[in-house]
Design a protein around this nucleic acid. Sequence first.
DNA 1: TTGAAAGCGATACCAC
DNA 2: GTGGTATCGCTTTCAA
Lengths: 346, 346
Amino acid sequence: MVRIDDVAKRAGVSISTVSYALSGKRPVSERTREKIHLAARELGYLPNAGARMLAGRRTHIFALTEPFRADTHAPSHMAFVLAASIAARRHGYDILLLTDEDASQGMRRVEASGLVDGIIVLDVAPNDERAELARSIATPTVFVGVPNDATGLMCVDLDFSAAAATAVDRLADAGHRKIAMLGHPAGHYEATNYAPRVRQGFRDRARERGLDAVFRPLSETQFAAEDAYRLTLEFLDDGVTGIVLNSEERSYKAVLDAVSARGMDVPRDVSLISVGAIFDTSGYHRAIDSIPLIPERSCDLALEELVDAVERQQLDPGVRLVTPEYRSYGSVGAHSSSPRGSGPTP
Amino acid sequence: MVRIDDVAKRAGVSISTVSYALSGKRPVSERTREKIHLAARELGYLPNAGARMLAGRRTHIFALTEPFRADTHAPSHMAFVLAASIAARRHGYDILLLTDEDASQGMRRVEASGLVDGIIVLDVAPNDERAELARSIATPTVFVGVPNDATGLMCVDLDFSAAAATAVDRLADAGHRKIAMLGHPAGHYEATNYAPRVRQGFRDRARERGLDAVFRPLSETQFAAEDAYRLTLEFLDDGVTGIVLNSEERSYKAVLDAVSARGMDVPRDVSLISVGAIFDTSGYHRAIDSIPLIPERSCDLALEELVDAVERQQLDPGVRLVTPEYRSYGSVGAHSSSPRGSGPTP
DNA sequence: TTGAAAGCGATACCAC
DNA sequence: GTGGTATCGCTTTCAA
């Protein structure tokens, strides 16, 4: 094992100078700095993790708690883990996985042993037990998602409600008067924190804009596609000309199929906008405009906050909402009281 | 932060006794042992991770390298990560995620900094660059999967070839003379290490048993279901009475549909056996016998090997194959030269 | 701009 | 069966 002494010897300086040259925490003359970096590179030197943890007050490790729930959507979850991991590495931190034991156990353990500098909480549930725990420990913790009671917590998430509102605005601006939202199964509105925010944003903005708006959840996940198909037909037959989608991936194709089945076209007869999707919506027969949930955005911001809290030694709680991005693929068209559509509500 | 001194003081003993009592590395009298454990529990004491890493020669952390490839099947991958993580915790080890940088970088980094005691390699490719790297570093490494050149490596995996052979045996024993295997798209047989082993086991055992056997890969993932449906019809029309499945999940339903479409029944007219599936095959209209790939089996064994290598300070290379388990759900029936089937090959 | 040396908090050797 | 203490490799204060 290469130690700091080896580097010091090879560069002809003291170990403290090596430490400072490599960490940059103290100015070192250009010449010695180069000698040291060269020596370190040649020897393949990296500071011993344990020693660094002990002497410094930093482990350079973040814990990532992720309850592998039964209903966890694996691809999305992986995308978040990856995004968090990459963001962490960018700041020089490694990721320690906290899975098994009931999340709280793991958090307590890394807290007590000083294994990590901070904790990242993924897959946040409305009544997440980790919220209370996070308040009770000294290790800075950031939530990617927002629990019901976010008091004293650092949270980062997409502004789902603004995303839905934006979708409504787009449709309203294009002249649509009668719109609908296809949502997740009803259970999601209890089990997740984001689904209700999407629905809320949709309803509120529709009211503000004076639109005739209807919200419909899918029934059960087992039949998402069939359900989406049926509900879409109902929408169309009701004269809906703009649909906001916030449901699982396989329902999207069904929606497009239903539109075709009525001999209609997107965006000529009906406009579609996806909200909060983590998958690509541009690859369908008809690409669908999207206000996506981008794991990188949330994770990048979350890690910025966390690193900041760790290095400034104090966290400032609060919910940071990521501004939605609108991705236009041509699925929204102008509407002017078509022969098919029923008129707007008075 | 609670330190070992605090515990020692509270228990009225020296810190070395505390250390020994908690680690169990030296006999301690019943009475003092209890005093110490009580004190530790009351104070919520856990040894400081950094100090433990530095003083001991163990970090109690394993790295987990997982290249998030585009073709990675998220649910399977998550199952393996979870299984590895749980197995690690059972041995007192934490899991550090190595994702970003090209896998090798991460492995080199944790090696040089002494951050981990061992490395777990998931999602092994035939020509995995991590194989060569593993040979070049001192950190014990275990592969869950088998690269082409496994020389000097510790590998653990399901015995895919034996699994396929077992499936063939079951069909042969039940009197089937003409069987088929529905495989992954052709690309899998280059890109993965297990697919060829399944095919090999299927072909070899079929030859040994003198069966008329045909292997057919799906064409492209995009149309897995359609493909499986079509191929199954061909099998049936050809007089095949036993089908071994080793293909993606959504093709299974298609196979069952195709059987129904021909007015046939499982297992009356045709027998089905799934090989190497990680998903549940018992939930279909007709439950399908399965010789599954069980992440826990592979990971448990892999971690046993790794922990052993770490603690004995020497690894013994070799490929450990997990014995397949047959799960019977009634999709295999006896066959005796049915009117539909063509006779066996001479 | 650089160096000497005091910790950081455990482990484990050596005494008793 | 128990206790003192050198030691692990680095960071950082204090001095020069």
